[in-house]
Amino acid sequence: MSGLEKITDNASVSVIKFLQANVPKSDLVNIEKELKKDFLLAKKKSKGQKVKKKRKKSRILTRKEKKALGFYAIPRDSVKYSEVVPLNQIWSDYISQMLELEKLGPVGTNKNWEQFTQTIYKADFHGSMMQVVRSKCPSYVGKKGICIMDTKNTFKIVSIDNLVTTIPKKDSVFELYVKDIKICVFGKHLCVRPAERSTKKVKSYLHPDL
């Protein structure tokens, strides 16, 4: 778009003709000159500024990089059952310390029963041995294994035959095994992201409907 270029294309010619017809006679001389002015924001100016700013080296993994490392997909046969058994051992120590199981009396008689249930819902479920007792989808019923991942709506468990299964929480009832105690947990109430669950307030009375 150099200033010396002769105006040739159809549209420009018609614009000039229009201007020549409508502009006062004293300005007629200036029409061609004014049209050939360069504007600051036009293409020409920005071309020179296109030198890219050096991006700062990012300190955290981007989503793309995470995907490349395989952080999102856990293949069905990637985790061995024998690898997660130690998790379960550490977990049962952890949960019995959390719930103070030694002091626990029979069901319903303890004064702190309410607090006990609160603690369960605030605890961590990674590494717990769980079984699906009831579910809307019958093929999930009876699945048993060690939980390795806990997302907002699902549990990922590893069963004894080294398979990773994803189970939706919402329509299932789980049973947890802590040493020789069984705890029944409704998955419906656990639909919170694991990091947020400890801060979230749980209603003291939860309807156990399914």
């Binding site: 998790l87 961590d124 400890s198």
Partner: peptide
């Protein structure tokens, strides 16, 4: 306190998983 206990527990299992499955270790 319960969160500290939780962090402690997660630290242990994350460390356990470090050599076996880096994906899970990173998750914990």
């Amino acid at each position: 306190n319960d969160s500290f206990q939780r962090i402690n527990y997660l630290y242990q299992i994350s460390k356990h998983m470090a050599g076996i499955n880096p994906v899970l270790s990173a998750y914990y």
